Amino acid sequence: MRLQDFRCHWALLLGLLLAGAVGAEPGAELASPTAGWRYSGLLDDLDSPRVAYPTPPIDRGGQRGRSLIEGHLRELAGIDRAQRLVVNGNPLPLYTDAQGRFVRPYAFGSGSNSVEVASADGRSLKRVQFYEANAGRVPPRVRVVLGWDDPKAELDLHIVTPDGQHAFWARPRLNNGGGLDPDGVDGPGPEMFTMAAPLHGTYLVYVNYWGNYGDQGYNFQAGSNQQEVITAQVNLVFNENSVNEKRETFVVPLRTIGDLVLVKTFTY
């Protein structure tokens, strides 16, 4: 083969390899929510299956009118590889099923909302901004969001409100208007507590390392978690999606099943 022909063949091969690399570039698709104006009461597809990947949350009924954040990761599939889902500034670990699909619930308030999918190193893969025009969806004045980085661990959010009521997985609905929903199971969340009309007084925010989850179901065996130290992240948001929004983020290490950590005491 002449040198000129060899160079042509090599250039063609290099071009194909580069094209393949470009085609394999990590990315994300969001089927829901879509950008633009949205009136959830009209646009939600009530016939679509209420499922979530990689594992389903439990609908405890603490909140109603939840929306699903549904999408697909390309070249980033796998439950053991956590990416990031950032909803209205609240970052959460994002796991998928084996095909890269994910569905997560979220209770959006009226007004401007955003959803972003980012890679583990923080690179934005997909972002949508939409305006929720349903006036019945009152933005929460207090929202507490828990997520963690181990799909084989089960953590629980516990909230004690000023009137002494205790919201957790066994009592998600409070008669003061507070609600814990969704309650993520099988790791890694999210779990959320919201109040649209918070009581004035002192609130307590706890995180409990309840147990682990494996092929045989729940267990309490040390070492059956994936991470030696589980990193929980708690986002405390006041007046979400308003000019008065304030937020605090707390990172909590958990090592032993049964750990119960007081994350924050705050006064509203």
Rank of each mutant, 00 (worst) to 15 (best):
H9G: 04
L13N: 10
L16V: 11
A19W: 11
P26T: 11
E29T: 14
L30M: 14
P33E: 13
T34Q: 04
A35I: 11
R38K: 07
S40Y: 13
S40Q: 06
L42K: 12
L42W: 14
L42G: 03
L42F: 12
L42I: 05
D44A: 05
D44G: 00
D45T: 00
L46K: 03
L46H: 03
V51R: 14
G61R: 12
G61W: 11
R64T: 15
G65F: 14
L73C: 00
A77W: 00
A77C: 01
G78Y: 03
G78I: 09
Q83M: 10
V87S: 02
P93I: 11
T96N: 08
D97M: 12
A98N: 15
R104D: 04
P105Y: 03
A118V: 10
R123A: 13
R123S: 13
V128Y: 02
E132T: 01
G136E: 09
P140G: 02
P140D: 03
R141I: 06
V142K: 09
R143V: 01
L155T: 00
V160P: 00
P162D: 12
D163L: 08
Q165W: 07
W169S: 01
W169I: 06
R171D: 10
R171A: 09
R173S: 07
R173P: 01
L174M: 11
N175T: 12
P182R: 00
G184D: 11
G187H: 06
P188N: 14
E191R: 09
E191S: 15
T194M: 07
T194A: 09
A196M: 09
L199F: 06
L204P: 00
Y206N: 07
W210Y: 15
Y213P: 07
G214V: 06
Q216I: 04
Y218L: 09
N219C: 02
N219Y: 07
Q221E: 12
A222I: 04
A222Y: 02
A222K: 05
Q227N: 13
Q227D: 11
I230T: 07
I230C: 00
V237E: 01
V252Y: 06
L254I: 05
L262T: 14
V263L: 02
F266V: 04
